[in-house]
Design a protein around this nucleic acid. Structure first.
Length: 649
DNA sequence: GTAGGGTTAG
């Protein structure tokens, strides 16, 4: 035998276990240990239980098994390690297991210590288990572990997460040995509960600030204050960490300011800072909002180049970006190439298929997901209901709506009801939609009524439209879109006077109509057009070319359709206004600047009008171009004279 | 070969 045999294998393997970094290495060593040492020597328990409990690739059940199999006397250290691992998993059944271990310790006459309580409070915080946490707090006070600053900090965190900011503050105020983490936890407690001013007050009083405190304030302003205030704080910060960039970039992306998100990222790049996956998710969301496919492609290639792990969030964001940029094929390529599909990857793909006019495939994917044993969640139901809506499949919609609770125990929320109202409304079943709203177990919100109002317009129901429209503009006076909808319903049902009344009210209340705006990306630069816009550097060319386009498509039967224009302008002017709708300018620009045969992609902030819709169909035929337009609600892929929406919109 | 906490993320 070689000289190494002199070292007893159990000790040799135990020391090897400490050195393992990767799961494969750990498993191999572990297997060898079991084979060569015939069993787990007591000394090997610590590294194995630590790895199994705490490593992301570990196995908490294995740790539990070993803990209970051990014939040596119970050691508080090992119990604490497993409780710590359980707490991290943030699932209530794991929290019960932790509690079970805690009582077992007491049964065995082993005293829990300050570590035990810290980990238990972390578990209570991650499951927001208020009752259990307060009971344990009582024990902590009795055992005077409450003097440990770690225990106190975990209590502050626990109460804050449970929304009990007063209790958290009580722990904080009672203590005289606070450290920087206590301050940060308390500031964050105020901020996450919407008490920004309290958070700021504490921030001002803080003896020393590190970047975590700044980031808490920054995050609070993004969530509950304003992104502009957050910007000001960002500019004042003595030192920014990666988290600061994450917060502000995602703040822009989530508040409908995608261009600023991209601009801030550019600034970050100029400082040679590398983005993490949270930033990439925000960039993808910004690209999705802008329809910026080239930029989105760049993000994807960056992920591949830097070998950034494609987790399920990043994967879902990529699928969403491609789908919203009109490239459903690329979206599905990402989806299929992703090995570890979870419900969010499926949901993004189902949404993407539905929104791009492939509802049948969306249903198939939903069924396919279930057959793989992945349970649909509340959001995936919204995706599949929207697929029903795109096809006008009312019965199927109700089938899914009922199966949600009956089969999967998911209670329908406002969004699901809104999908159903949209489905019924678009299918022309307006009264059924109204009855459905009346049957809701919760109070319908304005989004639901707005959905029905939209359906009233599509189906020209002036009576119901008037009733609901008036109710809506009174209950939410600042929403410009609903005034427009109502006045258009009047115009289209030949009730010009009523329409004029709506306009008057709008003027009196100083409500401005949000301008229609279209975006088109060219070589990574996003160009923006408003209706009748003359600010683009190629304006002259664009307008001239549009005139040529109109001449050509008129030969194929194009007639300017002015039905959906405001009623209070002359017929001739209507033609001019409608003639230069933003998507037409973007289209002309796209035709001038892109190679023949390439796809033209446009994103519009409001819904496309019927005149633009028929013009696009003809252009796709006459100029032999695929045109994809994403409007506020739907996708329109125009090809050879027809549209993927099949006129159902 | 006995450890622990605070900020971000669809």
């Amino acid at each position: 035998m070689p000289a190494a045999a002199a070292v007893p294998p159990s000790i040799a393997f135990t020391s090897l276990l400490y050195k393992c970094k990767a799961i494969q290495q750990f498993k191999q060593t572990h297997t060898q240990l079991i084979i060569r040492a015939l069993n787990h020597p007591p000394k090997s328990f610590r590294p194995i239980i630590s790895f199994a409990s705490l490593n992301p690739h570990g196995d908490i059940n294995y740790a539990l098994l070993l803990l209970f199999q051990s014939s040596t006397p119970a050691q508080i250290f090992l119990f604490n390690t497993v409780i710590r691992g359980l707490s991290r998993l943030s699932r209530s059944h794991y929290l019960s297991t932790s509690l079970h271990l805690f009582y077992r310790l007491i049964d065995l006459n082993v005293a829990p210590n300050n570590f035990t309580f810290t980990f238990l409070f972390q578990g209570c915080a991650s499951c927001a288990h208020f009752d259990l946490g307060t009971q344990l707090h009582g024990m902590v006070v009795k055992n005077s572990f409450a003097y440990d600053v770690f225990v106190k900090n975990s209590l502050i965190q626990f109460y804050s997460v449970c929304g009990r900011v007063r209790d958290a503050r009580w722990v904080f105020d009672e203590s005289d040995d606070l450290d920087v983490v206590s301050w940060n936890s308390m500031i964050n407690g105020h901020v996450r509960n919407g008490e920004i001013l309290e958070g700021l007050k504490l921030f001002d009083k803080m003896p020393q600030r590190n970047d975590v405190s700044w980031n808490s304030i920054l995050g609070g302003l993004v969530r509950f204050g304003s992104v502009d205030d957050a910007c000001r704080v960002f500019n004042q910060m003595p030192k920014r960490s990666l988290v600061s960039w994450v917060v502000l970039i995602s703040g822009f992306a989530q508040n409908g300011r995608p261009k600023e998100a991209l601009a801030l990222f550019r600034e970050m790049q100029s400082l040679d800072l590398e983005p993490n996956s949270a930033i990439l998710v925000s960039l993808l969301s910004a690209c999705a909002q802008l329809g910026a496919l080239d930029y989105g492609n760049w993000v994807y290639s960056y992920i591949q180049k830097k070998c950034i792990k494609l987790d399920s969030i990043l994967c879902a964001a990529l699928i969403d970006m491609y789908a919203k940029c009109g490239s459903i094929d690329l979206a599905m390529q990402v989806f299929h190439s992703y090995g570890d599909k979870d419900v969010s990857a499926y949901t993004s793909a189902i949404f993407g298929l539905a929104m791009n006019g492939h509802s049948i495939e969306a249903f198939q994917l939903f069924e396919n997901m279930k057959s793989k044993g992945i349970s649909p969640d509340s959001i995936s139901y919204i995706a599949v209901l929207s697929a029903c809506s795109h096809l006008g499949w009312v019965e199927k919609g109700f089938y899914y709506f009922h199966s949600m609770f009956d089969v999967h125990g998911i209670k329908p929320e406002l969004d699901h009801y809104a999908c159903m109202v949209d489905l019924l409304g678009r299918a022309g079943l307006l009264e059924e939609a109204e009855n459905f709203i009346a049957s809701m177990p919760m109070k319908p919100d304005n989004v639901i009524w707005g959905t029905l109002l939209g359906a009233c317009r599509v189906h020209r129901n002036a009576e119901m439209g008037q009733r609901i429209g008036n109710m809506l503009i009174e209950s939410d006076q600042n929403h410009d879109g609903r005034y427009i909808l109502l006045s258009n319903i009047y115009v289209e049902t030949l009730k010009g006077e009523n329409a004029e009344e709506v306009r008057k009210t709008m003027r009196k209340r100083k409500i401005k109509r949000a301008p229609g705006c279209s975006l088109i990306e060219l070589d990574g630069v996003v160009h923006e057009f408003l209706a009748g816009d003359r600010s683009h550097e190629k304006t002259q060319e664009i307008y001239q070319f549009w005139e040529e386009i109109v001449k050509k498509i008129k030969n194929y039967g194009y007639n300017v359709e002015t039905r959906s224009v405001m009623f209070d302008i002359e017929e001739e002017e209507k033609e001019t206004v409608i003639g230069y709708h933003s998507e037409k300018l973007a289209l002309a620009f796209g035709l001038i600047c892109t190679k023949p045969g390439s796809v033209i992609r446009i994103v519009k902030n409001i819904r496309i009008c019927s005149d633009c819709h028929s013009a696009m169909k003809l252009v796709s035929k006459v100029f032999k171009r695929k045109i994809s337009i994403r409007d506020r609600k739907h996708y329109h892929h125009f090809e050879d004279g027809s549209c993927s929406c099949l006129e159902y919109w």
